[in-house]
Design a protein around this nucleic acid. Structure first.
Lengths: 221, 221
DNA sequence: GCTATCTGATAGTGCCACTATCTATGATGG
DNA sequence: CCATCATAGATAGTGGCACTATCAGATAGC
């Protein structure tokens, strides 16, 4: 198909598709003449993936480019890509926490994280960005006077393990080997959005049941 | 204290503090003379909250302004604020899903969500933004060929309920009534970041245990 | 008095995800 | 074969966002 049809099918404007190609998110179409290119199913599928990671996953274009490069790299063994891909899918990584990294809250949080990982027997490296994110979040909690939140960390970790098991089981059960890497990326990123939404629904329900009311239906506007 | 000390204590630049005041995130200091204002403990605490919601929670300045206004509104009954506050803390709400909202994937997703809410007996209104987010995420899954992901939704929901229960228990146990609203906001937003990080750690661990390896330590850079 | 700091205001910056416009070329149809 | 349309590729511009720079005028504290 040509770029116009690709655009129509996916709802992505033609200039945006060209932009994605420029940024390396989408391979260029196969040139059939100097100014004609044809796009296939794989382009359509990739485009939908890009929009999902952008719109639902909230990832940045540059991050998506990295992840897609990893997905397309079929040289490295599957399990290594799984690990690397899962590693890269963090929040915004600034790496600018140089001075804030040495205050009391950060040191406490780091200890809490190290302790948790040990207690859980988690096979994860300290350099995993997720560990840094966790430290950052717990340090912020601490600074806001909620250091006691660490008491519920194990409840959170139980739930996280349950979700991770469900993800792995899904991938094992439903996904062909050739699509596994992509499925893990989708599951990690979109699964996060799914869980966050479920958590907020459960939150409203739990507080409704406790306080005997239900969430405001009206968003006035 | 004056604005300079507030800046030094929190690490937030003076012009940025002024910007937050302009945007309504932070109440202005109490004027002691036409060009001198004094800031108190509450300003420092509020400023830390703002930075946490921004840096860790990834919220936008305008969203934070809304939430803080709700926190400061002491007129409405506590449980209503809890519901409203929890409602507002979603992802980026675009409301522009008008045409994409009527395709097959979206309709399927909406049915799945309605079914889930009924099955769970969740007391939540359909207009809850979280429900829309969930629908959006599931529709994206569907379009990517992962409609079977709905099979693990109940595992996710179990985990979400567990997390919600832990949150409520924490607030009940640790937080004074006057700080409850703020604590719920913190718990919802920062707790999300905490859980997402834990989920990624658990993910790496689970795949490490299954595939007998551990995540790449090296992020080459 | 003198200098550092402050308030309040306006304008500018850098990043990001597009989006508009242009040229030259080829596709398509009567 | 010629008018019209779509396309590739390139460059520049847009709008949103979170700041950040600069300034004028006033005050603090020595």
């Amino acid at each position: 198909m040509r770029i116009g049809e690709l655009s129509r099918r996916t709802g992505v404007p033609v200039p945006t598709i060209k932009y994605y190609v420029r940024e390396g998110l989408l391979p260029p179409g196969e040139l059939t003449s100097p100014n004609q290119a044809s796009y296939g199913e794989s382009h359509e599928r990739r485009l939908r993936l890009i929009r999902a990671l952008l719109d639902v996953g909230g990832m940045k274009v540059a991050e998506i480019a990295d992840v897609l490069t990893a997905i397309d790299d079929r040289d490295r063994p599957l399990h290594k890509v799984l690990g690397a891909a899962a590693d890269r899918l963090g929040a915004d990584h600034d790496d600018q926490a140089d001075d804030a990294d040495t205050d009391g809250a950060s040191r406490t949080a780091r200890a809490v994280v190290a302790d948790l990982v040990t207690r859980r027997g988690w096979r994860t490296h300290e350099s995993n960005p997720a560990a840094a994110d966790l430290t950052k979040a717990l340090a912020a909690m601490d600074r806001l006077g909620h250091s006691a939140f660490t008491d519920v960390l194990d409840d959170y970790a139980d739930a996280a393990e349950q979700v991770a098991r469900a993800d792995l089981a899904y991938v094992d059960r439903e996904v062909a080997v050739e699509d596994m890497v992509e499925a893990v990326v989708i599951g990690t990123v979109l699964g996060e959005a799914v869980f966050n939404a479920l958590r907020r629904l459960a939150h409203v329900d739990a507080s409704a049941k406790r306080y005997g009311t239900q969430g405001q239906p009206g968003t006035p506007g």
